[in-house]
């Protein structure tokens, strides 16, 4: 498969990209961008909950869960769609005869030592998502790392129906908690629980509740996705 001629489209691409790059440099070096008032300043001034704000210290969590909550709902939907599609494409694949490589000795012996730390770190990051950096996505993936380590160590984790049930149940509770705002007289994803004292664990109203559900859903989805990637002969 030797090429007869050099594709001229390649040079057009290169020249166009270089021109875009050269044109973009002064935009990012200028200081005018810093002088304007940003949306983030207004959001930060509303974040501590003085007048209808979120009432939590972490500004990023306030934006992700409260001000842009519908985006997070769509993101979780996209994750669910990808997990379903991967299961659809890999689920009916029969066992290819492949020599089973033995897992590493160190991994299979030290997994019981490492597992509780994975779980504890993930749960801590999920539950303190409104006070410190972290939240549902990060903590969910870290807690799912526990099961990924079990899969790497060669254990057969059965793809049970309970995993799918927990995933769908957490997603449903997210929407139910968000819709209850309409019943209590505020908007969808509105704040209707008491805010509590600032900068304590039991504060923030519905925001920690929603982030816990997001964490459970993301963790179970990651487990299912990687399990579908790895299963060779794990038919039930």
């Amino acid at each position: 498969m030797s090429r007869k001629f050099i594709n001229p489209l390649k040079f057009i691409w290169a020249i166009a990209l270089i021109l875009i790059f050269v044109n973009l440099i002064p935009v990012f070096l200028s200081t005018d961008l810093k002088a304007e008032e940003r949306v983030g300043d207004v959001l930060l001034s509303m974040t501590p909950g003085n007048d209808g704000g979120a009432g939590i210290p972490n500004g990023v969590t306030a934006v992700v869960v409260y001000y842009r909550g519908l985006d997070t709902l769509g993101e979780v939907s996209v994750l669910f769609l990808v997990s379903t599609a991967v299961g659809l494409f890999f689920g009916r694949e029969k066992s290819e005869t492949k020599s089973e490589t033995k897992p590493n000795e160190i991994v299979s012996h030290s997994k019981t030592l490492v597992l509780p730390h994975f779980m504890l770190t993930g749960l801590y990051i999920i539950f303190h998502g409104h006070l410190s950096p972290g939240g549902g996505f990060q903590g969910g993936v870290m807690a799912a790392g526990m099961v990924l380590l079990l899969l790497l160590a060669g254990d057969r984790v059965k793809q049970t129906k309970a995993l799918h049930f927990i995933e769908g149940f957490a997603g449903s509770l997210y929407i139910i908690v968000a819709t209850l705002g309409l019943y209590f007289g505020v908007s969808f994803l509105g704040q209707y629980l008491p805010l509590g004292e600032f900068n304590t664990l039991l504060s923030g109203g519905i925001l920690p509740v929603i982030y816990i559900f997001v964490g459970i859903k993301v963790g179970t989805e990651i487990i299912g996705l990687y399990q579908n990637f790895q299963n060779k002969e794990a038919e039930e």
Binding site: V39, G40, P57, N58, G59
Partner: peptide
């Protein structure tokens, strides 16, 4: 952007 004092809301990076 993690607010320590609820009365001071400036001097943090943009969270958006």
């Amino acid at each position: 952007p993690i607010i320590a004092d609820p009365n001071i809301v400036t001097g943090y990076a943009d969270p958006l």
